[in-house]
Each structure stands twice: as structure tokens, then as C-alpha cells.
Simulated assay, not measured.
Amino acid sequence: MKESLSLPVLIGQHTSPNVESLFSVLLRLYCTEVVKEAEDNDGISTGSVYISLCNRG
């Protein structure tokens, strides 16, 4: 992304439970912001991208 973000970005990604997602890896290649797969009780920070992997059981 060319401009820094003033808000957090939350993405819900629906995938098969048996398939490893490379979406966060690919986003890191193109973004200067922090990109991470969200975990329980994570705090949400401005300018970060969080990916929630849905359908994981």
C-alpha cells in the first residue's frame, strides 16, 4: 500500500481446514504495514492488517 493506514484492517478468510493459507505471506510482500494472522485475545493496532482464518475448527 502506498499510504500508511490510519485504521486497522480486519479480514476474514474462509478456507478449507486442510489447506495452508499463504494470503498473509503474499500481503507482507506488498504492504509496509504489519500483517499477521489474528489470534485469540490479540489487541488491534492502528495501521496493522489482521487476517482471521475461518473454518479452522
Rank of each mutant, 00 (worst) to 15 (best):
M1R: 09
M1V: 09
M1F: 07
M1Q: 08
K2W: 03
K2Y: 07
E3S: 09
E3H: 10
S4T: 15
S4D: 14
L5I: 06
L5P: 00
L5Y: 05
L5E: 00
L5S: 02
L5A: 07
L5M: 10
S6H: 05
S6E: 07
L7M: 08
L7C: 07
L7A: 12
P8E: 07
V9L: 12
V9N: 00
L10D: 01
I11Y: 02
I11E: 02
I11H: 03
G12E: 14
Q13V: 08
Q13D: 08
H14Q: 09
T15S: 12
T15E: 09
S16H: 06
S16T: 03
P17H: 06
N18M: 06
V19P: 01
E20M: 08
S21Y: 02
S21F: 03
S21V: 02
L22D: 14
F23Y: 15
F23T: 06
F23H: 04
F23P: 06
V25Q: 13
L26W: 11
L27I: 08
R28T: 05
R28V: 00
R28E: 10
Y30K: 12
Y30M: 07
Y30R: 09
Y30V: 14
C31H: 10
C31P: 01
C31R: 13
E33G: 04
V34H: 14
V34N: 14
V35M: 03
K36I: 03
K36D: 02
E37L: 06
E37I: 14
A38S: 12
E39F: 06
E39W: 03
E39D: 05
D40H: 02
D40T: 08
D40C: 05
N41E: 15
N41M: 09
D42S: 05
D42Y: 08
G43E: 15
I44S: 03
I44Q: 03
I44D: 01
I44F: 09
S45A: 13
S45E: 15
S45R: 13
S45H: 13
S45T: 08
T46A: 13
T46E: 14
G47C: 03
G47R: 01
S48L: 00
S48N: 15
V49W: 04
V49N: 02
Y50S: 00
Y50E: 01
Y50I: 03
Y50A: 00
I51C: 02
I51Y: 01
S52Q: 12
S52M: 13
S52E: 10
S52T: 11
L53P: 09
L53C: 04
C54F: 15
C54G: 05
N55C: 13
N55Y: 10
R56F: 08
G57Y: 04
G57E: 06
G57N: 11
